[in-house]
Amino acid sequence: MLSSLKDRVGAVLLPGDGFSLDTDDTISLTEQAKPDKVLCGPGLRRSGARLVACKSGVLRHKLPNVFWVDSQQRRYVPAKGETVIGIVMLKSGDVFKVDFGGSEQASLSYLAFEGSTKRNRPNVQVGDLVFAQFTIANKDMEPELVCIDSSGRANGMGVFGPGGLLFRVSLGLVRRLLAPHSDIRSDLDQLFPCELVVGMNGRVWVKSSSIQQTLILANLLQSCDTMTAPQRQELFKRVKQGAL
């Protein structure tokens, strides 16, 4: 059963593609017979004796038995510990209501900023961008954001400074950007210096020295969504030569 899954690793799955969950009918005598336990990530779901893909994307595998579908969806579902870019919608009492692109707004306490006390309130206006982390992300509860880590440090989170451009990309591209040795990021490094903030909710904020460069970066990243690696490198090379 595992072998049928492993065979498809790296292949494109479409919703409805299924795998049989039946155990093999022959058990090898020499090898130790161990019951296979498969961990299914996003995009795979069990239906009876079968494993069915419910998202379209590339099947990924991690040792020992973790499988998931890497999709290009744009809808964000909050998860605890993920960092997102939110827009402050409302100041009500001691919490801010923050839109992060999910189904409901999250609450962000004004005490959850570095160095803020009851007296020393952070300077946050309605419409400001915040980079924050989920402490509560539960389907039954209101999501809650904080701008400090467990030791009370900002650690890169907080309110954004002026300037820069916010735009949306797919969640798949965000994950590719945030991967430890991201090739998109290394390609970007070679263009021009920029500040880049990537939220797991698909929002990306970019700031460069001039408006023209910021626009170029934003358009490049948005077009990266649907490009293969050689296409992207070709495009980046052309940009570097000043063709665009």
Binding site: I87, M89, D99, Q125, G127, D128, L129, F160, P162, G163, G164, L165, L166, W205, I211, Q212, T214, L215
Partner: peptide
Amino acid sequence: PLSNCERDFLLKAIEEKK
């Protein structure tokens, strides 16, 4: 919602004819 940052950037870009 439209954030302040987008609004500022757009207006600045339009001033620069971008």
